[in-house]
Design a protein around this nucleic acid. Structure first.
Lengths: 369, 369
DNA sequence: CCGTTCGAAGTAAGCGCTTACCCGAGGTGG
DNA sequence: CCACCTCGGGTAAGCGCTTACTTCGAACGG
């Protein structure tokens, strides 16, 4: 309590502690890191001095010396803004990555790690260099959503452990994603067999997204084998965003296209836009057109009608990504490099697909899932 | 491209660059930091070597030497979980802090800073020490939502710059918050004078929250001067959470309490719970009871009925907090310490208060706000 | 009783940068 | 023509830790 008297104080260093305890800085370090076995009284004196001074080791010095920063960098892709639309204020687009980050953070804490979060515009010219710069502040990197081309990814992975989310694994990186295939097949079978819909459409996410591609492919496959019609392609691009979903529907209606019986959206966000556009035109959901999402974001159950979606345990996605990265940082991680880790998904039936929630499992059981 | 041949390479150091360029490490450092005026050819050689090797300086070494980590720590309060409720999966509670963080991050980027994010349970015994530990990895700290008691806050602020969000300023810290007072007064006047409601209730946020207290006080003041009844107190605690809002309404209905004409919620999140509970009991909103929120989260406009709320520019809150902290870190910051910075708020009228959106300003203008 | 061993604690060498300081070459004025 | 100044660039001293290596004292056996 003594030398913190005046404001603007520098925090105490290990030297201050050593002096106060009457030992060398090496002893202080040993006590703090449980190395060697100090005599009981030495230990006591050090601990007392630490408590007295409120000493906490400086992160940078520790990192430099121990070659471990206890920080992992996270790169989030900032959505490009679609101007002039109803959904200009698309902050909510980031809810999905934010929830994933939350999952990482909770697990990271258990290992004494923190997350250094940086977002990048994809069209940003130097996105790559900003990612490499973050790398030098971290022990490992988690990349959301395909932010680096394969060459650069490879170069990055050579320097430090890298895990991707919803990307593609490489020889040196691991990838974590929801089980898109079985999730989407469950949606498709439900719409086709349980509801008997014969015309479907797939509103895709952004181009090149492995998630979107896999989901689309699974849906197409199920549609084909059931012999039902599937619309997809250029007219059906939602870009994972509400504005994109709404715009797609507007264009289709303006073009006089006959809408399919059910619209399967690549994620919940774009489904929100679809629901909104349909409502604007007085088209009833699910009466005229059924709509489904993917992700089961918390907002899905607050929509009218409540949105049928595919639940991924979003926090698990983050937690798994972190654990995988951690094993590469601290263990040898040889077992995980190159792996593609799929987490289970589960169809959540609500009103928007045509189901009557009253007839389903009791609400609490369903919601608690 | 030469020494990155094999996997698992260490990134190049400043020594590698110096050797490649045939200069000393000091020259490399000078070129990279624009110190002194190196001869043109020296500069060229260094830059070429940097590009060739893909050199990026190590963050820890730079931080240790320059006494600047270019990192600010952010402490978010993790919500305590309310078990067994419909809203168990309250991930969305973190949407508000996440959006604030987004605002910080965007501004931080412009200054080359990154955010180190850590969440704490309030009931966690060592929340304080975890915050102090984060401090040693950062150049400054931003505290969301009252996570530290005044004594510890003061001790922390002695060691490094601190800005609080929705807290209270101290002699050495600055605080940033939305203008709760005028926002809430706008809600109150609208409900009382425009709609003529004569019985109101205030569903409070969590205890001790300065935001909640200020909002409640403003509402009470307006109610008093208009001579209308205001219910508040123990029965009207929502804890800022949907589950809390729903539970409060359930308890009131179970107790046979007659509901007021309008329920003013401390935030949008708890309003969601209120809307839900009212719907469960077949109570019409806004026909029987009007409901308002606060914050104008993106989800507010997707609710049925759309939620009347008070818009705060959430990202501005974060951006302002960062800029304030930055001026304390890099400038002298003497001007901002002790300040309480209020950002403007704006009433957004939607359906849930009884307004007919069709009669209001055109949708796009309103939504784009 | 002395040589040996063992273990606790001190000494010092980095970790990869920034920067104060110094040196030497070139240009100026007396 | 020499003393002096300028300025680009090298040398080296840290920044605050961790840890390999060393030292020293106590305990032990022969």
């Amino acid at each position: 309590m003594s030398q913190e008297a005046s404001a603007g104080n520098q925090p105490p260093t290990i030297y201050d502690v050593a002096r106060a305890a009457g030992v060398s800085i090496a002893s202080v370090s040993r006590v703090l890191n449980d190395q060697g076995n100090p005599r009981a009284d030495t230990r006591q004196r050090v601990l007392a001095a630490v408590a007295e001074l409120g000493f906490v080791p400086d992160g940078a010095a520790r990192a430099l010396s121990a070659r471990l920063k206890e920080v992992v960098g996270v790169i989030v892709r900032r959505p490009q803004w679609l101007d002039g639309s109803l959904f200009t204020d698309e902050d909510e687009n980031l809810q999905f990555p934010d929830m994933i980050n939350r999952g990482m953070e909770i697990v990271a804490q258990r290992h004494g790690f923190d997350l250094l979060i940086r977002s990048v515009d994809l069209d940003e010219a130097n996105a790559g260099s900003r990612i490499f710069a973050l790398a030098r502040k971290s022990d490992g990197i988690i990349l959301h959503d395909r932010v680096l081309d394969p060459d650069q990814l490879d170069r990055l992975a050579r320097q430090l452990p890298v895990v991707t989310l919803a990307g593609l694994p490489t020889a040196t990186t691991a990838n974590v994603h929801g089980d898109n295939d079985s999730g989407m097949r469950a949606v498709a079978r439900h719409l086709i067999h349980d509801h008997g819909y014969r015309t479907l459409a797939y509103l895709a996410g952004h181009e090149g997204s492995p998630d979107s591609i896999t989901r689309g492919r699974a849906l197409a496959d199920e549609a084909r084998s059931a012999g039902v019609t599937l619309q997809a392609g250029d007219a059906w691009q939602g870009g994972y965003q509400a504005a994109g979903g709404a715009a797609a529907i507007e264009r289709l209606i303006a073009a006089g296209t006959r809408l399919p019986r059910a619209i399967v959206c690549a994620n919940d966000q774009s489904a929100i836009g679809v629901l909104h556009a349909l409502a604007q035109h007085g088209i009833s959901v699910p009466g005229d057109v059924a709509v489904t999402g993917f992700d089961d974001m918390p907002v899905a159950r607050h929509l009218r009608p409540q949105l049928t979606s595919v639940r991924q345990s979003i926090q698990d996605l983050g937690a798994t990504a972190f654990e995988t990265l951690y094993s590469m940082i601290c263990g040898d991680g040889s077992g995980v490099r190159g792996q593609d880790i799929a987490l289970p998904t589960q169809l959540v039936r609500r009103r928007s697909c045509g189901c009557d929630p009253q007839l389903l499992v009791p609400r609490n059981a369903q919601e608690a899932g």
